[in-house]
Amino acid sequence: MHYIVLIIGAALVNNFVFSRFLGICPFLGVSRRTETAIGMGIAVIFVMTLASIVTWVIDYYLLIPFNFVYMRTIVFILVIAALVQLVEMIIQKVSLPLYQALGIYLPLITTNCAVLGVSLLNIQLKYNLLESCIFAIGASLGFTMALIIFSGIREDLDLNDIPEAFQGTPIALITAGILSLAFMGFSGLVK
């Protein structure tokens, strides 16, 4: 039960995009078409889970014992970047179709603040390894969902006559704002 609550909390109540406002760059960048949004979403699920496990391990066995917690952010950035590169290489070798499907999005995630955010939050919220893992899955599911919902709306927005000043990113941001308001409705669902 605890883990289900954790997932719902991370995916809906504290949605990374709509409540925590993390990962807005790929959220706006890769949400033009639903297909690319799905590809990006799957890549994020994969990387976020892996990154949170690795960073948790590094934090627990390296940073805390040696009392280097103040260097957490910079170490995490380094590790995540290297990890993403590694994963990209492995996928390219092991499964070319998978690489072609999401390999393109992997470099984009390298500097995604949502990935770093989830790693730091894991530590801040004092989760254990399993909890961090579940939390990361929930958070990335929430991110994917936000991306897919938003891309659907944007595809529909293309059909409408939007005033010139609002065309493109402005209307996308306005829509994202309204969508964010809608997600506020989940607050209080999980404590």
């Binding site: 390296l62 260097m71 170490v75 380094l78 590790v79 290297a82 590694l86 290489m89």
Partner: peptide, 16 residues
Amino acid sequence: LLGGIGLVCALVLGVA
């Protein structure tokens, strides 16, 4: 430490 982690990452990436 940072250099060490970087080095390890670099090595792993290089081998990979």
